[in-house]
C-alpha cells in the first residue's frame, strides 16, 4: 500500500521542473531557437537530467527498478524497435537510426536475436509476433502487412499485460491506447479503401470499441464510420477526425494526459511514476512540435492548436 514512497516523493519534487502553460506561452512567443533554449534552461536549470525520455526512464528505474507495471509504458517502443530491426535486416541496413529509446529490450541483442531467429530470447510478449512478422515479411515482402501485424500485436500485448497487473490505471491506459490506435487505423483504412481482410488484421478491438463493429463501419464507408464513432463513447473524437488529423492526434495524447492527471494525485504506488513518464513524453512532444513550427515559420494559431495538454 505504501510502495514507492521514496520514488513518488522524488517525482513530485521533479514535477516542479516540468513546463507549465505559462512557460509554453513564453516559448510560443519566443523569437528564435536561442530564446527558446534560454527559457527552457531558466525553468529546468543547466545540466538537467530529464531532458530526454531515456533520462526520465533511467531516473524512474533508479527509484523503482523492480516495477514491472511501468514496463508496459515501453511496449510501444519495443514493438517499434522490432519493426525497425526486421525491416533493416531485410533491407540490409543498420537499424540503429530507426530505434526509439527507451526500450525494455537490449537493442544490440534484438538485432542478434532476429538474425539468428532465436526468438526464445525475446521477452515473452513479443516472441510470437517477431516470428510471425518475420515469416510474413519474408513471404510477402510487404512491409505494410508486417507493420499492421506488429502494431495490432502491440496493443494486444499492452492489454494482456495490463489485465495481468489487475491495476485499473494500467488497464485504462492500455484501453485508451487501443481505442486511439483503432480509430486511427479504421480512418486510414476507410480513406485508402483497404480490403476487409487487411482492416480485420489491422484493428485490435477493445471492450469499448468492438472489433467486428468497427470493421463493419469501415467497410460501410466514411459516413458510416463517422456515424458509428459518433454513437460510441468517443463521439468527440469522431468530430475531430472530420475536422483535422492533427487535432485528432492531439486529442489522443490529451486523453492519456488526463488519465495521468488523475494518477498523480496518489501518494504511493507506481501510478504517479507512470503519470510522470506520460507527462514528460507530452512535454518532449510539445517541444518538438514547437521547434518544428518555429523552423517552418508556422503562425501562432497553428502552434497553439497543436500544443498537447500539460499535466502541471
Amino acid at each position: 500500500m505504501t510502495k514507492y514512497a521514496k520514488a513518488v516523493a522524488a517525482i513530485k519534487a521533479m514535477e516542479n521542473y516540468l513546463l507549465t502553460y505559462s512557460d509554453i506561452e513564453q516559448l510560443i512567443n519566443a523569437s528564435g531557437k536561442a530564446e527558446m533554449e534560454s527559457i527552457i534552461a531558466s525553468k529546468k536549470g543547466n545540466g538537467n537530467e530529464t531532458d530526454t525520455l531515456e533520462n526520465v526512464w533511467s531516473t524512474l528505474m533508479d527509484y523503482a527498478p523492480e516495477c514491472e507495471e511501468l514496463k508496459i509504458l515501453l511496449y510501444k517502443n519495443d514493438f517499434h524497435n522490432l519493426k525497425a530491426a526486421l525491416k533493416s535486416m531485410i533491407a540490409g541496413r543498420e537499424p540503429d537510426n530507426y530505434y526509439i529509446k527507451p526500450s525494455n529490450l537490449n537493442l544490440d541483442e534484438l538485432k542478434d536475436i532476429l538474425s539468428s531467429k532465436d526468438y526464445g530470447r525475446l521477452p515473452e510478449y513479443m516472441r510470437e509476433t517477431a516470428e510471425n512478422a518475420y515469416k510474413l515479411i519474408t513471404k510477402t515482402l510487404d512491409g505494410q502487412l508486417a507493420d499492421s501485424l506488429i502494431d495490432c500485436d502491440t496493443l494486444k500485448a499492452m492489454q494482456k499485460a495490463a489485465e495481468k497487473t489487475g491495476n485499473s490505471f494500467m488497464i485504462r491506459y492500455a484501453l485508451l491506447n487501443t481505442v486511439c490506435a483503432d480509430i486511427k487505423t479504421a480512418y486510414r483504412c476507410c480513406k485508402m479503401k483497404k480490403s476487409v481482410n487487411f482492416t480485420e488484421n489491422a484493428i485490435c478491438g477493445s471492450s469499448e470499441i468492438e472489433k467486428d463493429a468497427l470493421v463493419r463501419a469501415v467497410t460501410g464507408g466514411m459516413e458510416t464510420l463517422i456515424s458509428y464513432l459518433e454513437n460510441s463513447s468517443y463521439g468527440d473524437a469522431a468530430g475531430l477526425l472530420e475536422k483535422s488529423a492533427a487535432q485528432f492526434e492531439k486529442w489522443c495524447d490529451d486523453v492519456i494526459t488526463e488519465l495521468a492527471e488523475q494518477a498523480r494525485m496518489q501518494s504511493f504506488g507506481f501510478e504517479p511514476l507512470a503519470a510522470y513518464y506520460i507527462a514528460a513524453e507530452a512535454e518532449i512532444k510539445n517541444l518538438r512540435i514547437l521547434s518544428i513550427c518555429k523552423e517552418f515559420g508556422a503562425d501562432r494559431e497553428t502552434v497553439t492548436e497543436r500544443m498537447r495538454k500539460l499535466y502541471v
Binding site: 514512497a5 521514496k6 520514488a7 513518488v8 516523493a9 522524488a10 519534487a13
Partner: peptide, 9 residues
C-alpha cells in the same frame, strides 16, 4: 523514505 526522495531532488 519519502523525505529522502524529495531531498535527493
Amino acid at each position: 523514505e519519502a523525505a529522502a526522495g524529495v531531498v535527493s531532488v
